[in-house]
């Protein structure tokens, strides 16, 4: 819980990756899914999730679908074509970042 700041910059990548796997999701579902997948280690706050979703939507990466569920409206988000491409790029960036961090925090010593 104390290292939430470290996750902050990766929020968009997390959202995109989730949508790539689950086709379409609504806001609350995303928060719950992240909590479940990380076993409570990462909790996306509401105040951060929706602004991130709205930004991705404005950038044309997400498309929306609204369905009436029980007695209320539910807004689903799904990836657009550009969004799918961006997800691949962002995941690659993330892999690169993890690799670099790995090198930095856990350098392999050699005798040379």
């Amino acid at each position: 819980m104390s290292n939430q700041k470290l996750y902050k910059g990766s929020l968009q990548t997390i959202i995109l990756k989730l949508l790539a796997t689950h086709h379409k999701m609504y806001g609350y579902e995303i928060t719950q899914k992240v909590k479940e997948l990380t076993k409570g280690e990462l909790q996306i706050t509401e105040g951060a999730l929706y602004p991130a979703l709205h930004k991705l939507e404005a950038d044309g990466l997400l498309d929306i679908e609204v369905v009436k569920v029980e007695n209320r409206l539910r807004k689903y988000y799904k990836l657009t074509e550009i969004g799918t491409k961006e997800t691949t790029d962002k995941l690659e960036e993330m892999q690169q970042f993890l690799k670099t961090m790995q090198h930095l925090v856990n350098p392999k010593f050699s005798l040379e």
Binding site: T45, E46, G47, A48, Y50, P51, A52, H54, K55, E57, A58
Partner: peptide, 16 residues
């Protein structure tokens, strides 16, 4: 939603 309540959401939506 934190101390700012819905403010962050409103702001992001307005920008979008």
């Amino acid at each position: 939603f934190g101390i700012f309540g819905f403010m962050d959401v409103i702001e992001a939506k307005q920008k979008q």
